[in-house]
């Protein structure tokens, strides 16, 4: 089991009074892309936020490379090498593209070191380097949000719905970029767009009503229409 980077074990997370996660367990292998699937409200975003320490779980455990991280503040979890690309991107709208990226530096020189790689993935960012993040299009903002997670040396990236609300051509660019990133890092991906998730992921976990109900190899899931209809179909 030495190649498991992230291990989430039966976490229970509450938001206010609401019991959102009722025992989610999953494992992410080093170097893989793992997709977290499920309907709206199944608890995918909350799972990512729990791992990140933004909604700390009330019970259960989360280990990063064997080290327990649950209960630690979000900034410490990030410093351990976890990058977060949230739902709706959370770009700093008043900061320029450059400042958005610079803010993500954890050591001086991080950005200089990774800049070429980032700009090769997302050439648009170079063009708008000194523009405020709020002036970018939705697709460019998504690229910036992903790029921001690449600035520091991250072992694990948590990416929440990167295709949400984007035109198919932009989604293709992002898929290509994620694929390139996967060569260097490990990704836990939440995605509603099943076609996109199927293209990218090696493994999948399905959440339903705050529980992890099924997991396996993505290659098997694409042919399992019963499961897809049961947990991922509309309605």
């Amino acid at each position: 089991m030495s190649d498991v980077l992230l291990e989430v074990d039966t976490i229970h997370t509450f938001i206010g009074q609401f019991h959102i996660l009722e025992g989610v367990s999953l494992k992410v292998r080093t170097g893989s892309i793992t997709a977290l699937l499920g309907r709206n409200g199944a608890g995918k975003t909350t799972t990512l936020r729990s791992i990140m320490g933004l909604n700390p779980p009330r019970s259960g455990s989360i280990r990063l490379a064997g080290e327990p991280i649950n209960g630690r503040p979000a900034y410490e979890i990030a410093q351990l090498g976890v990058g977060y690309v949230p739902e709706h991107r959370a770009i700093f709208r008043d900061l320029t593209v450059e400042e958005n990226l610079r803010l993500a530096e954890r050591k001086r020189g991080d950005l200089a070191k990774r800049s070429d790689f980032i700009m090769s993935l997302f050439p648009d960012l170079k063009r708008f380097y000194r523009h405020p993040g709020g002036k970018l299009s939705g697709g460019q903002q998504q690229m910036l949000a992903i790029a921001r997670a690449l600035v520091a040396d991250n072992r694990l990236l948590l990416i929440d719905e990167p295709s949400e609300g984007l035109a198919p051509i932009i989604v293709e660019q992002i898929v290509a970029a994620l694929r390139q990133m996967a060569a260097e890092t490990t990704i836990l991906l939440v995605e509603q767009n099943f076609a996109m998730a199927a293209q990218l992921a090696d493994e999948y976990y399905i959440l339903d009503d705050g529980r992890s109900v099924q997991h396996g190899r993505m290659a098997d899931l694409v042919h399992d229409h019963a499961t897809i209809d049961k947990y991922l179909g509309a309605g």
């Binding site: 900034y75 990030a78 977060y84 900061l95």
Partner: peptide, 20 residues
Amino acid sequence: MIIRAGVQDGEMVQALGINV
């Protein structure tokens, strides 16, 4: 820069590894 970013979204600043 951290202050300007924090005014907009303190949680995201945390998630970048900054002790807000």
